[in-house]
Design a protein around this nucleic acid. Structure first.
Lengths: 407, 407
DNA sequence: ACTATATGTTGCCTTAGCCAACAAACCTTT
DNA sequence: AAAGGTTTGTTGGCTAAGGCAACATATAGT
C-alpha cells in the first residue's frame, strides 16, 4: 500500500500528543511484564528512563485495567527498600487454533505466557474449512467452561499451514488441507463471537521463538521449519516481523537454490523444499509416518549407507539455502525447527561448512545456528500472541470479552 | 545485538515524555518538507492530526533552526484563506562521495533534495582507500568554495561498491576496488573534519528510489542494481531498510538460484550475479566498455541470434532470482537499475513469465516491476540522505558545521 | 541502634499540545 | 462593491502527563 514516506507512530497517525505518550508508556510496561513474566518497578524505571512516580502511576493504571498484579517482593535481595514486583494477569487469556490434516489443536494461553490447556481433536480425514471452524469453535466452548467467570478473553489466534492474507484473515492457499480462498477468520469470528487473527504457521513460529524462545531478544532472525507439509519460514528484520505487502512474505522454503527439476509441494522446481524432504527420509527408513522424535532416533543412529547419503545431500541443500538467507538478511541467529533440527544435530560441522561455502564471509562470520526451544507449545504461544497484540499495543483501549458461564 | 524485545522509540529509550513528543513532531514535519519539497501548513495539520496552532509553533521552531522557510502562497487556489507554504532550506547541504575503479564522484546536495553540483575526478588506476580519501577531501574542499558563508553542512555520505559495516563505517570488502577492512569513514572524517556515513551503494540506491524515485511511498520494496562490478541489491521491509545485524544485508546478487558452477565476483557459484553478467553482453556485442545507454542501444536493436540467446538466458535467470525475492519479501514493487533495465525492456513479457513461473501465485499477483527513475543523481541524492538522517530524526539536536571560507 | 542505600509516595511545577474565539484572506453571489 | 461563506492563521487560557524534590519506608551492613 502506498503511504507517506514519513514513519508513523503506533496510532497510525503521524503526529504525537499527550495521549500517544500515555498509550506508548502503558504499552511498553505491559509488554515488559508480558515478555519477561515478572518485572520490578525499579527495573521498569531503569529500562524506560521514566520517573519512579510515573512508573507508579502507570502500573496502577495497568492494575486497574486488569492486566497486571503487584505483589511485595517475595525475597528481598540487596540493599535498599525492595521494589514491588509486577506480574502479568492470569485473568486475561487468548485461544490458539492450529488446523492440520490429521487433527485440529486448540489451546488457552494466559497473558502471562502460560499454556493453561490444549485440546487435540483428531480428524479422520482432512477437514474442510467449515468443518475446521466447527471443530475449533466446539473446542473453544469446551475450554471456556474451564475458565473462571472473571477471566477475560482477548481473542483467537489461528496458525495456518499455508499462505494467509493477514489484512482480512483469508487463507489464500493451504496445499495440505486443500483450502483455497477460505475466509477462515470471519467464519470463526461469526461462530465464536470473538475477534480472530489468522497468520501463517511458520511466521507465527518465528515470532514465538523470537519473543519467548531461541531467538529471544534478537533483532535479525531467520527461522526455518520443516514438517510433513514442506518447509516454511519466517524472518525478523530489524526487530519487526517480515510480512510483505499482503502478509505472504517469508516463504523461505520456496526459494530456488539448485538446478534440480524436482518440484516442491507448491509446484516450484529446484527449491529448498524440493530438496530437503521429510518423506525421503521416512522412505529410506521404511517408516510410513513418524513423529519428529521417532524420526530423530533413526537419523542419529542409522548405519545405512544410503540413508547417510540422503542425509548428507539434504544437509548440503539446507546449507545452500541458509547461505542465501545469510547473504540476504545478515541475521544474528538462524533458528531451525521440525526435523531440520535432526539434520543439524546429525552433522553440524557439515551444515556449517555448507553455509560458509555459500555465503559472503562478512555476512556469515557471526551467525549462530540453533534449534528452536519451544517444542509443542510453539504454535499455541505464538497464535495467542496474535490475539494479545492489539492489547499490548494499546492497553487502555483494549476491548475484551467476558467469559459467559453456561448454566 | 541482543536487546529488549519491546520496541524502542526514536530516542533509543523505551519511555516517552514530552521532549520525545516534541522531537517526534518536529522530525515528522521536517521529513515532510524534505521528502515532498513543499508542503502547506494545512497539509501538515491534515497529515499529522495536530492542531493548527501546534503546527504553527512547530514550523516556527523549524524556521528558527534554519531548516525551513515559510512563504505566502504563490497562487491561491480554492476558497478560504490561503495556507502558508513551507519549504526545506537550501542553506543546509550534505556532500556525497562515490568511489569507483575509474573515478571518484563527489557532489553537494541541499536539504531540499537538489543536487547543486557534482565533480567527477577520473582515476588512472584503481585507487587505494587513502588515495580515494584524499581525492574526495580535495573535491569537497573545492565544492565548499562554491558555497555561501551562511550555509551549513550536515556531513558526508559515502556509497561503496562493497560490503560496509555500518556501525563504524568500515569497508569490509570491496572486490572491484581491492579494498579489505578499510576504515574509510574515520579516515575521511579525520581529513575533512565532518561527520561521515558510509554504506553499500545498492542499499543507498534502494533507499533513494524509495524516498524520491520509482518506489516512492511503498512499504515493501526489492531493488536490484547491476553494473560492471556485479549485482547489488537492497530491500525495504515494512517501510524500513533491510540492514541486517552488521549492515551487510541485502546482498541479493549473491543468492544461489541455479545449479551452475559458474562463479560470481565474490567466488560463489550458481548465484544471480554469476548468471546475469554485463561482460557477457559486452562480449557478444564486441564492445570493450560501454555506458549503460550505449549497451542499451545494442540490446534493443540487435539481430544477432547469439545475442538473443544470451539475452533470453539472462532474462530467465533474472526472473528466477526475482521470483525468489517475491516469495521471500512479497514486495509491492521491484525496482531494476543499471543494465537490468535494458533486460527488462528487451522482453518484459518473458521476464514477467519467468517471475510468475518461479513464484507462488498469491505472492506475485500484485507485484509491479519497473525501472529506477533517478538516473545519474541516484547515489548523490542517496548518499546525502545518510548525512541528513540524524538531522531529520532529531532536528533540534542537529549539530551542523559552518562553511569556513578560505581567504 | 545507626548509617547507607534503594525504592515508594506526595504535592507542586512545567510545558506541549488542545481548544475556542476571533482575525485574516480567499471565493462566490447578489 | 458589499455581504456571506469558507478556510486558515493567531491568541490566550486550559489540560494533563511526566518531572522533580522532599520525605517516608524498607532492606543490608556495621
Amino acid at each position: 500500500m502506498k503511504s507517506p514516506i514519513v514513519p508513523q507512530n503506533i496510532t497510525g497517525v503521524l503526529g504525537s500528543n499527550r495521549d500517544v505518550v500515555r498509550q506508548h508508556n502503558l504499552s511498553i510496561l505491559l509488554q515488559m511484564i508480558h515478555f519477561y513474566g515478572t518485572v520490578t518497578r525499579s527495573q521498569m524505571a531503569a529500562a524506560t528512563g521514566l520517573n519512579r512516580s510515573t512508573i507508579s502511576d502507570l502500573v496502577a493504571e495497568l492494575e486497574q485495567l486488569g492486566f497486571a498484579t503487584e505483589t511485595v517482593a517475595a525475597s528481598a535481595s540487596g540493599v535498599g527498600r525492595p521494589s514491588y514486583v509486577v506480574t502479568a494477569s492470569t485473568k486475561v487469556v487468548a485461544f490458539a487454533v492450529h488446523p492440520e490434516v490429521d487433527a485440529t489443536t486448540v489451546g488457552v494461553v494466559t497473558l502471562s505466557g502460560k499454556v493453561l490447556k490444549t485440546l487435540r481433536v483428531p480428524m479422520s480425514e482432512s477437514p474442510t474449512s467449515a468443518v475446521s471452524v466447527q471443530t475449533a469453535a466446539a473446542a473453544i466452548a469446551e475450554l471456556k467452561r474451564g475458565l473462571d467467570a472473571d477471566q477475560k478473553i482477548a481473542g483467537i489466534g489461528v496458525a495456518i499451514p499455508g499462505q494467509v492474507r493477514v489484512s482480512d484473515n483469508v487463507v489464500r492457499l493451504a496445499p495440505q488441507l486443500g483450502w483455497v480462498e477460505q475466509p477462515f477468520g470471519s467464519m470463526l469470528s461469526q461462530v465464536s463471537g470473538l475477534p480472530v487473527f489468522v497468520d501463517n504457521d511458520a511466521s507465527i513460529g518465528c515470532m514465538a521463538e523470537r519473543n519467548f524462545g531461541a531467538a529471544r531478544g534478537y533483532l535479525d532472525v531467520v527461522y526455518l521449519y520443516a514438517g510433513s507439509g514442506g518447509i516454511g519460514g519466517g524472518a525478523i528484520v530489524n526487530g519487526s516481523q517480515l510480512r510483505g505487502a499482503s502478509g505472504y512474505g517469508g516463504e523461505l522454503g520456496h526459494v530456488r537454490i539448485g538446478g534440480s527439476n524436482e518440484k516442491d509441494y507448491s509446484g516450484l522446481a529446484g527449491t529448498l523444499e524440493s530438496m530437503v524432504r521429510r518423506d525421503d527420509l521416512l522412505h529410506v527408513f521404511k517408516m510410513f509416518s513418524a513423529t519428529d522424535e521417532e524420526l530423530d532416533v533413526e537419523i542419529q543412529s542409522t548405519k545405512s549407507g544410503e540413508a547417510k547419503k540422503i542425509l548428507g545431500a539434504q544437509i548440503d541443500a539446507l546449507g545452500a539455502g541458509i547461505s542465501s538467507y545469510v547473504n540476504i538478511f545478515n541475521p544474528e541467529v538462524i533458528v531451525l525447527a521440525g526435523f531440520l533440527t535432526s539434520l543439524f544435530n546429525y552433522d553440524p560441522d557439515r551444515l556449517l561448512a555448507a553455509v560458509k561455502q555459500g555465503s559472503l564471509n562478512a555476512s556469515s562470520e557471526r551467525v549462530v545456528i540453533r534449534a528452536g526451544e519451544l517444542g509443542a507449545d510453539l504454535l499455541m504461544i505464538g497464535s495467542a500472541e496474535l490475539a494479545f497484540k492489539p492489547l499490548l499495543e494499546n492497553p487502555s483501549a483494549a476491548a475484551l470479552s467476558a467469559v459467559k458461564k453456561s448454566r
